[in-house]
Amino acid sequence: MKKIRAFINNSNISKFRFYFQIAAFVLFVYGGYFYVTISEKLPTFACPFNKGSGGTCYLMPLQHQLHMTWSRFIGPGGIHLLKGFLVFACFGLVFSKAWCGYLCPLGTIQDWITKLRKVLHIRFSKYGETTFKGLKKIKYILLFLLIIIPLGVSNSLLWLPKFSHDIFPPFCKICPGRIVLPLFTGDTSQIYIDFSTKTAMTMTALGMIVTGIFFTGSFFKKRFFCLFCPMSALLYIFSKVAILRLNKNVAKCTRCGNCYRVCDVGIKEIADDVINKNIVKDDCMLCLKCVEACPEEGCLEVSFFNIPVFMSTETGFFKRYCLRNEIK
């Protein structure tokens, strides 16, 4: 048992993650062809517009279920919404943010783009702390909008006229997943701008623009789109109570900042927070690179059902970061 534990702790989880992501990508993008349908309430961007999806993103049914008149909320519509959310919550409670780091196909594509940039020896871009904090708020705004707009399509909000149905489903219209993921199954039909009405044109054009930003952004900044992802905001609800956790033994932290350095989404608290034990933040995708980069024995630890499954070790750090570039 001790040996197995040491083997896991000293292993290169990033490599494991790379292959795991490929497997998950195949499952979520091509699984449908093999009659795999895991669920329609997945907390990950497996896009329903892609015919091969082996399970689909929860944001789509969420928007549809919110698209109803107030009266239907107290009745079958409400129950339906609640049931959907409970299924989604179950997924979120088990794997928490690991959905983002290990399973999300859109996240995987961004990691591949980063790999391409590294091969080309092109620099990444840097942000000031304040810019970064400002950008991060966008995902909460998007989450708010994707809830409020479907309500506004079926109801009059604040005595305003109802929104045009052409705006629906609002997030899917602007989500790059809708355009990018079908491409992997040879479906280019999502690349379009709908000129039928003004609203439709705005929304589909926005979708194209966001897709453009998605590619350029994630080329220069790791996991760029994840900063704005409303799913990430929604999953954050469960991270404090989820079964899969990232814990920090704060007494052991030297605040060397290695974890912050390697963090793809630039979470500063992981290095600076020496009060909280549960260290999963809203942008975290549980990729566990921080655990790999921590040279302090047992300072960062991943637990499942309170059983530690992977923790930072001195030996592991040297194996991963130093001895491999031994010269002479």
Binding site: T254, G257, N258, R261, K289, P295, Y321
Partner: peptide, 26 residues
């Protein structure tokens, strides 16, 4: 000698700040 350098991308652009961090943060 205690604190370690952790580099994310092995380019000068990232290595020099990584080394700098090791001599400041801890």
């Amino acid at each position: 000698l205690y604190d370690m350098v952790a580099v994310d991308e092995w380019s000068l652009y990232d290595m020099i700040p990584a080394i700098a961090d090791r001599y400041l943060k801890p």
